[in-house]
Write a protein that binds this DNA or RNA. Structure first.
Lengths: 210, 210
DNA sequence: ACATTTCTTGCACCAGGTATACATTTGCAC
DNA sequence: GTGCAAATGTATACCTGGTGCAAGAAATGT
C-alpha cells in the first residue's frame, strides 16, 4: 500500500514546496504584483522555466492550495448520512468548519492565512483565479446533486449556483471582518448566526423580501 | 439639452467603434487567442498604443458591450412599481427579456450575437472577464436591495448573490441549447418555464431537495 | 492666426509564458 | 559499479500584452 516514493518523486515534492514557499513569502512581503516570477525562481534556486513546469501560471503559486476544496461540497453531499437533505448536510459541514476555524469559512486567524487572504482579495488577478475555483465547485456540486434522488439537471445547477454563491458570500464576510481587526473567537458567534440565517434563507426562499 | 457633440467627440466615437468592430470581426473569424492586438490595431488603422487608450485590456475589446447591463438588476429593483417585491420585479424583467430575445437572457439567435457568445464561453480569459461583470452586478444589486425596505446588509448580499447566480445559470443554459442548434423560437417556451421554475425555487427555497 | 489643450504615435521597456535544443540527473538492468 | 533510456532542469531566444515617455498632429477657444 505504502508506495516507496522514490528519490525522483521526493525531489519533485521538495522543489514544488520550495517554489511555493518562496513565492508566498515574497508575495506576502512585497505584494503579488510587485514580485516577478524571476525573483521567485531565484529565491527558490530554480530556473524560471522550471518554475513554469511546476506551476502553469503565476497565480497558481498562491491558489494551488485551494485545489482540494474544489469538490468539498460534492463530497459532503454524496457522503451525507441517510435521511439527511443535501442542504442540511452542507449547512452542518459549514458550521463544523466554523468551529474548526477552517480557512475555507473565512474564520481562520492564523496570521499567515489571514494575510494570505487579504493579499488574494486585494489582487484582481488572484480574485479572478478564485472565481474559477467557485465555478469548478459549482459544477462538481451540481453533478453530485443530480446523482442524488435524481434531481433534474436544471434544478441541480440552480441549487448548486445558489449554494456556492451563499457559502462564498459568508466566507467573504468573515474574512472582511477579520481583516477589520476582529479575532476569530470574537467573530465566531456572529459567524454562526449569520450562517444559520443564510441557510434558513436558502431553505425557505426569498419570498419575504419586500 | 442636446449638446453639440463636436468634431473631436465624433471622431473618438468613430475610432472606438472602428477598433471594436475590427476586433470582433477578427476574433470571430480566427478566435480570440489566435489574433494579437497588433493585428486588431492594424485592421482598425490605428496604432497599438491608441488601441490601449480606448480599451484597457484585450478582453475589453469584446466585453465592453455588456458594461451597461452591470447595473440592470439594481435599476429594475429600484424602479419597480409600488407593491411589487424585488423578486417579482426581477422575474418579470427576465421574462420580458426572453420575449424580446434580449441577449442577456441567452435567447438571442442573431447569428452575430450567437457566435460571439460561443466564442466568449470557449475562451477562459473572456469567461473570467464575464465573472467580473457578475461580481459588479451582484454588488450593485445588493446595494439596491439594501436601500429597499431597509433589508439588512447580509441578507441583501446573500439575496443578490443568489439572484445573480440564478440569472446567469439560466442564461448559460439558453446559450448552450442554442449552441446545440435549437432556434430561439423553439427554445422560448422551455426557457420561460425554466425561468419560472427557477424564480419559484428562489421564492420558496431549496427545502424540497432530498 | 495663435496658443492651449487633447489625441495620436513611435519607441523603448517590462513581465508572463512558451519552443527549442542541450545538459544533467535518476531509475534500472546487467 | 557501468551503461543506457527516460525524465528533469537549464540557457537562450522569442512572442504577446501592457505601460511610460516625449514628440508630433489635430481640434478648440479667443
Amino acid at each position: 500500500m505504502s508506495e516507496e516514493p522514490g528519490l525522483r518523486e521526493r525531489k519533485k515534492r521538495r522543489t514544488h514546496a520550495a517554489i511555493s514557499d518562496a513565492a508566498i513569502s515574497l508575495f506576502l512581503q512585497h505584494g503579488f504584483d510587485q514580485v516577478s516570477v524571476a525573483q521567485v525562481a531565484e529565491a527558490a534556486e530554480v530556473s524560471r522555466r522550471t518554475l513554469f513546469a511546476y506551476f502553469p501560471a503565476k497565480e497558481d503559486l498562491v491558489v494551488h492550495r485551494m485545489a482540494d476544496h474544489q469538490s468539498e461540497g460534492a463530497r459532503v453531499v454524496l457522503a451525507r448520512p441517510p435521511g439527511t437533505s443535501p442542504l442540511a448536510a452542507l449547512r452542518a459541514n459549514f458550521l463544523t468548519g466554523l468551529d474548526r476555524r477552517d480557512p475555507i469559512t473565512g474564520l481562520s486567524d492564523h496570521p499567515h492565512i489571514h494575510a494570505l487572504f487579504a493579499m488574494i482579495l486585494s489582487t484582481p488577478a488572484l480574485v479572478a483565479r478564485m472565481e474559477r475555483f467557485k465555478s469548478a465547485a459549482e459544477h462538481t456540486l451540481a453533478e453530485a446533486l443530480r446523482q442524488t434522488s435524481a434531481t433534474p439537471e436544471l434544478t441541480a445547477r440552480l441549487a448548486a449556483a445558489q449554494l456556492v454563491a451563499v457559502q462564498w458570500t459568508l466566507a467573504l464576510d468573515n474574512i472582511q471582518r477579520l481583516a477589520g481587526g476582529q479575532s476569530a473567537d470574537d467573530r465566531h458567534p456572529g459567524a454562526v448566526s449569520d450562517a444559520e440565517h443564510a441557510y434558513t434563507l436558502l431553505r425557505t426562499g426569498l419570498g419575504d423580501l419586500t
